[in-house]
Write a protein that binds this DNA or RNA. Structure first.
Lengths: 140, 140
DNA sequence: TGCCATTGGTTACAGATGAAACTAAATCAG
DNA sequence: CTGATTTAGTTTCATCTGTAACCAATGGCA
């Protein structure tokens, strides 16, 4: 078990995600899916729910729920797409920007703390390996 | 987002786990936690629920539930620990062994298919990097 | 134009999950 | 020994999650 790759990936991913989420979840009353939506909108504003789902690999139900909560909390703002009445174009509000601005450094600091275990060269290796594995995993 | 390590780990881990689970879940009526319990007992028989929780990093509630279902399905067998009446010593039954024997090759084949994307040298790198990251993640 | 298939998104329901409370047994302190 | 604390494991409850059904708008296409 302890040398089974899928298992180790799962453990590692859980440890990391939990550690990071622990730092913002209750403080900001923000779930992981919500944070992902904020993160992607922070980088690329004016996406539709569909586009967010694609960008984050979340399923559309999860996006729908996260968006609903974020809109209710006035952290993102939805405006109608005049070309297609089904779509809504989403972007962070000032409050959403503020949340993004406060959490992003926390998340990046955790990532950095983790990566501190690796040298610059190893980080490159990791990056390359992950890319290859992500592609390969697609074909499973 | 697409270069944020925790996020990429999460995507990779999910892709891999889902792909593998898809191959045994309905066929064997087995959840991922249940499979983990079987896998660990297959390698090391006669563990208590506590020990399984430690070995798999599952929480004790998850272990309790998986064990209950597996016992009900006669895939594992529980016998009292004469030194401590609270504990039960768990091991695979013949049926459980059979499930293990049939799923293990499937899981290993998936792992191998994934690793086929990497050279022998890269596999070593990956192994080393994961070990380092797992330790580092503990300290988050 | 009018009908059907597709798409964006939400709702409903059922099952999974986790924190916290709980039970029972074991250990420890005096 | 007796009572307090800890430990193994279960149950409860509230929340989360995913699948499937659904609704409304759009895009063919005859």
């Amino acid at each position: 078990m302890e040398d089974f790759l899928p298992y180790r990936l799962s453990i590692l991913s859980n440890r990391v995600s939990r550690a990071i989420a622990a730092r913002y979840a209750e403080t900001f009353d923000l779930s992981i899916p919500e944070w992902r939506v904020i993160a992607v909108l922070g980088r690329t504003p004016n996406l539709t729910a569909k586009e967010i789902a694609e960008a984050t690999e979340m399923d559309k139900v999860a996006v729908s729920r996260a968006v609903a909560r974020l809109v209710a909390a006035k952290r993102i703002h939805a405006r109608a797409d005049k070309d297609d009445a089904r779509r809504q174009i989403l972007a962070l509000t000032a409050q959403g920007e503020s949340v993004h601005a406060r959490i992003a450094p926390i998340a990046l600091a955790s990532e950095e703390k983790l990566l501190r275990a690796l040298s610059a060269k190893e980080r490159e290796q990791l990056d390359a390996l992950l890319n290859r594995l992500l592609v390969a995993a697609h074909g499973l």
